[in-house]
Design a protein around this nucleic acid. Structure first.
Lengths: 228, 228
DNA sequence: CATTGAGTTAACCTAAAGCTAACATGGATT
DNA sequence: AATCCATGTTAGCTTTAGGTTAACTCAATG
């Protein structure tokens, strides 16, 4: 698990909090760094590139808002999740917090158990944000939306059966490239499954039926390719 | 970084959105322009030629769909990525969006960080049009594309039958080198298959037919070589 | 001018892809 | 639980492109 060795930077001016929360996080297997103010936090963040930063809002020297703002400008923290720690009631800080690029906030006082589970969920979320690389592919009059498992062909929206979709999906990752049958089996079926020799053909045929004959070219003895 | 100075045009009729999103994008180093309706957006787009346009669908005066349609007709925006902002649920707008030439869509509400990472990925995608790392071999007026299993000879694209392609492929790996018939059989046919004595000749003949006589030189008693 | 290896041609053969319908499966729906 | 339906797979047949062969011709060499 990546989470097992995830790095967390904890920033608060109260040593008590650093200790208690830090202890609980370490217990969960996180690698914990601490800082007592924003300035210090920035230095450590730059050096350690933590996966998650928990930032108290009210701090001397440099408050959390300002620190967060600066962190968000640091390219090495692109993939870092930042969350604020705020005393209950300071509602305004939360709003300002989102403006400066924070991902979440936690209100104090917080039970360690609750905090830990929040940390977990934040780190999990981060992984779900990363593959946010929009999964839409446009090729002439064909649009493939890998997120929604649907395609739009000649302005008509349609959903394809899974295998067909995956086959199409594969072929269109590199239009023009010839994919060997073996390659196709590996990716679409998985190299442990063994399917008959005509299975690919049948799916190609169905795709041709739906998306037009000429988009899928056969290269005999080799495989198939998608052409615009 | 090119991204550092990329121009983004943000179009929405809600000033709040313009401010929050605009703020976050500026924070990332983008040069941000804003417009409150499609008409205004068109003017700014024409003048500033942004790299990315984020377009709300629902707007007074001129909606995003119409604006997009008009933008796509402007030659100065050929290299511009256009993405829609749509409230979750208005699914139809997405489909219509692709019809009028949008490249992607983003659903509201969206967290600033998510939006920023989406923006990055969209701008990255735009730059990624070129780096097609394929194995292409160029030899004078002959181009051999092993991925696409096709060749281009004198600017004319053609696909060769498998054996011919492989034979050509082999000979061109070392132009000028003489390949013994035995070597050719090993590579193209596989050393277990036994084929008659005239088989190679026939394939050479077909290649000569297609690619010109003089490219393939016979070395009597030995084999063949490819010469430019 | 005989021998040897390569070129040419068209007929032939075959492996690979196309096609169709039947069968299997698993997930919904009632 | 029983049924239904969409998807996926298979078997078996047809079709075809590609590959091979055989038979003959040609050119070079000694």
């Amino acid at each position: 698990m990546k989470d097992a060795k995830a790095k967390v930077l904890l920033v608060d001016d109260e040593p008590d909090i650093l200790e208690i929360v830090g202890y609980n996080l370490k217990n969960e297997g996180y690698q914990v760094f601490t800082a007592e103010n924003g300035e210090e936090a920035l230095k450590i963040a730059k050096k350690k590139k933590p996966d998650l930063i928990i930032l108290d809002v009210m701090m001397p020297v440099m408050d959390g808002i300002e620190a967060c703002e600066k962190m968000r400008k640091m390219p090495e923290l692109d993939d870092t999740v930042i969350t604020f720690l705020t005393a209950r009631g300071e509602d305004y800080s939360m709003i300002a917090g989102f403006d400066v690029g924070a991902d979440d906030y936690i209100t104090k006082p917080v039970k360690p158990r609750v905090l830990v589970s929040k940390v977990k969920s934040l780190l999990r979320r981060r992984e779900n944000v990363a593959p946010e690389t929009s999964n839409i592919l446009k090729l002439g009059n064909l649009v493939i939306d890998r997120d929604q498992y649907k395609i739009i062909y000649k302005k008509e929206e349609m959903i394809l059966p899974r295998k067909e979709f995956e086959l199409l999906s594969l072929l269109t990752t590199k239009p023009g490239k010839v994919f060997k049958r073996e390659e196709i089996l590996d990716v679409v079926w998985g190299n442990e499954v063994i399917v008959g020799g005509r299975t690919i053909d049948v799916h190609i045929r169905k795709l041709r039926e739906k998306l037009g004959d000429d988009s899928f070219k056969t290269v005999k003895g080799v495989g198939y390719k998608y052409v615009k």
